[in-house]
Write a protein that binds this DNA or RNA. Structure first.
Lengths: 232, 232
DNA sequence: CCGTCTGTTTGCCGTGGCGCAACCAAGTGC
DNA sequence: GCACTTGGTTGCGCCACGGCAAACAGACGG
């Protein structure tokens, strides 16, 4: 097992309040695992054997409904903790996580969680903050889905992706992993068709420019105004 | 300050893993406060000075959008922890909590939280589980809003209310606090009018019976089938 | 007991966005 | 280089809901 350099991860919010030696000791218990593009890191309803920190790549976390529809819960970026099912009192994963590009994650056995939090109480506190902010995100999403129409929901979703994974390019800001219109649809409760129409409209206004699994935001501020429903 | 009998609250999930004396000591730091019907326990964007356990009554927690629309986040029932903004790393409350009936809550100053979790690590673990299950609820709601049409969403909302606060009466199961069609609308992302129409339709099928701020479910199983989209 | 207020019901109409279908374009594998 | 697959675009018709409007009924205060 290749040991992971502490300096890569010691600054993550997950490890706040832990002494460097403590972080080292935790890292020694973790494995670093590769997940090639398209593979599942864990599966909905599968036994929650592990929890993770993403080191490299991007994951798509989604729920599958009984009738086969997918709903994207979130995208995971490097540095984020995920798969903490055990910590929140579950024995199975509530969703599936798939690598959208080749990815690498640190993996701990869930069984180690109780001992780890007992030894490092800060872990529970840090995880509580992480889960708490996800709860707020989820509530924000509920509010948006309750009160906004599709175009604004899509705008909000795109802006969130920009904040989380925006990369500056010549033309503006690009979302730095492959994402389809279908993905955006599954994030916003819209259909592929509607998302496509909206993005096309934005493109013709010079707001964004698109491509296959690619979105570049040319005028983030304009998009923000649109998301907030303000006149521009 | 009236001291609260430990036996009333010691079994709550929040205090799991704490010794009786520890619970006693925590209770000594809490105040028991009355909130008459219609008053706010805390306000959205207000400073998160306290966290709470509801002893008696029912609260309606909602978010207000910039344009004045309300979205109900949840209803709080006796025994539940709420207002844990500080624990999840916020300095202000993300929503408003209003007493829908005369209510009583235990109140701790948020400032005491860091010391309390340091002394009783189990608190962080228990809160993590609570927040975690709320996160799952929120995700369930997102999935429902993304994939189901109104009638099924309303059915799911009503069934959740039944599970949380159902009281057996002669005619069936009644939701044991006053709730309006508008409330249901704000829980499901529908309008008052649509909710009213749906409930009327159910009533004419003998599924439920309604009244002013009152819903009695006469055939919970039928409603469940409807919620799951199964033929009956 | 009456006026008022708040919650509810119901009809009618308009429409946002979904479903379907056809077509197109860019990768990808052989 | 060509077939095939995957993702994207766009037109058309429809319908589930929302918006508006009007009327109603139980609760509450004076």
């Amino acid at each position: 097992m290749a040991s992971v350099d502490r300096t890569l991860v010691a600054d993550l919010p997950m490890f706040a309040g832990l002494a460097p030696e403590q972080v080292d000791r935790m890292l020694q218990e973790a494995q670093s695992v590769r997940y090639p593009k398209g593979t599942n890191v864990f599966q909905q309803d599968g036994e929650a054997h592990s929890f993770f920190i993403l080191l490299h790549g991007h994951l798509r976390v989604f729920k599958l409904t009984p009738d086969g529809q997918q709903v994207v819960v979130r995208f995971v970026s490097p540095g984020e903790v995920f798969g903490v099912a055990m910590a929140i009192g579950r024995t199975t994963y509530p969703a599936t996580a798939t690598a959208v590009v080749d990815s690498i994650a640190l993996v701990w056995p869930s069984a180690a969680w109780p001992r780890l939090v007992a030894t490092h109480p800060a872990l529970a506190v840090n995880t509580l903050q992480t889960v708490g902010s996800r709860l707020q995100d989820a509530h924000t999403r509920v509010v948006e889905m309750s009160t906004e129409q599709v175009e604004r929901r899509i705008a909000h979703a795109v802006l969130r992706l920009v904040r989380q994974s925006g990369r500056k390019v010549e033309a503006g800001v690009e979302i730095d992993f492959p994402i389809t219109r279908q993905d955006i649809a599954e994030m916003t409760g819209a259909t592929l068709h509607t998302v496509s129409r909206v993005l096309s409209a934005w493109e013709s206004q010079g707001l964004v420019e698109g491509g296959r699994q690619r979105i570049v935001i040319r005028q983030p501020h304009k998009l923000f105004l649109l998301a907030e429903g303000l006149p521009d």
